[in-house]
Design a binder for these strands. Structure first.
Lengths: 215, 215
DNA sequence: GTCTATAGAAGGATAGAC
DNA sequence: GTCTATCCTTCTATAGAC
């Protein structure tokens, strides 16, 4: 309640975020968190009861952070191609500043499937889907939307989530990881836009030759 | 040396692979491994000395498995577009059968950067790069090869590595994850091939208007 | 609210019998 | 080579003083 309460709780939360993001739940140590927060272990338990509860608080916050950024970009009002270009620039820059965030979310959900439920409460997919359905109206069949979305996420998230390994591989080829990621902010949206153009061409050509049905 | 030796060591190794792949180094328990192998903890140490050494043996094997599959596909002799189609079908089917493999590699390298070195010894990139450079000769500028490769890997690996989360998201949209992945084996290569065609068109159009230099 | 001290449990590792 | 019993460290969590 008091000012000091808030400060201590925040210091703990910040330190815990740091440690959990870097090490994950299983490898994180309460002692490390206490040290980093400049207090002692007992105080951690005073504020958050158990390691699990502290972890959940951190996961909740980070899951929210992860999804909010994603959604906020997609809800912007601009032409679709422009939006894709904007998305990669904005989202990858965000991930560059939070390089451990995607891997943290992915790894922890992978280890504890119950966390998905928590994550999904953060995700309001309907709004995004409607947005995109409107954006691409006429450009792509509606069934293609999930594939387009997964393509976008894969291209944006994977090169950051796999940073250490990609960094190593690129280095052996004489390429600097950060430079590469900078390039990718423009290369990736170009990929997608080219694909969409080509897709339009093809659907023109094959207009009425394809009438398979899908439920 | 004896037949029983081999059997026990293999049982341990198999069990350890299971547990480490699912839980990761930090959360894995020697007791769990012993139980799963049908022996006791002491015997684990008799064969592998320490948890770390056992883990390293498993990681080494799995890193090898991961990269070997990737390389074996790319070294096949076929036209480039066909190879991309073949790659996604083959590689994603492989990952479907080993759904925890990519996340394991990524997460563990992320937690312990020293493992990259071990992983890179498995990777003979030069052979692959030369292969691809030959494949795309004339279709794409050589500097684009790393980007093309990262695009391919991102699209193939990410949807499997992020399985639990993607499964959850798709389910809220009434889509079955496995069906989706099956579709993706053809959608993803189509996507890349379209992009390459469009790329060819564009480089025709803009032939000599672009003469920026890159080192 | 914050600290020191310590309980109590878990897990990795070893000794020693068979 | 395999087992039981046990050591010892590490870590979460709590008790209790200030």
């Amino acid at each position: 309640m008091t000012k000091d309460d808030k400060q201590t709780e925040e210091k703990i939360f910040t330190a815990a975020t740091d440690v959990f993001e870097k090490k994950g739940l299983a490898a994180a140590r309460m002692q490390d968190i206490a040290d980093k927060a400049g207090i002692n272990k007992a105080l951690l338990h005073y504020y958050f009861r158990t390691k699990d509860k502290l972890f959940l608080a951190v996961f909740d916050k980070l899951a929210d952070k992860m999804f909010r950024k994603f959604a906020s970009i997609f809800e912007r009002d601009m032409p679709f191609e422009e939006k894709i270009t904007y998305f990669f620039k904005e989202h990858m820059t965000f991930l560059q500043k939070n390089p451990r965030l995607p891997m943290f979310i992915l790894a922890e959900i992978n280890r504890n499937p119950k966390l998905i439920e928590l994550f999904l409460t953060k995700v309001n997919l309907n709004r995004i889907k409607e947005r995109i359905a409107g954006d691409i109206a006429g450009k792509l069949p509606e069934e293609a939307v999930p594939h387009l979305l997964v393509t976008i996420i894969s291209l944006s998230v994977f090169p950051i989530a796999a940073k250490p390994i990609l960094e190593g591989i690129l280095r052996t080829g004489g390429i600097n990881y950060n430079d590469f990621i900078e390039e990718r902010k423009t290369v990736a949206p170009e990929f997608i836009i080219r694909m969409l153009k080509q897709s339009a061409i093809e659907s023109d050509e094959e207009l009425q030759s394809d009438n398979k049905n899908h439920q």
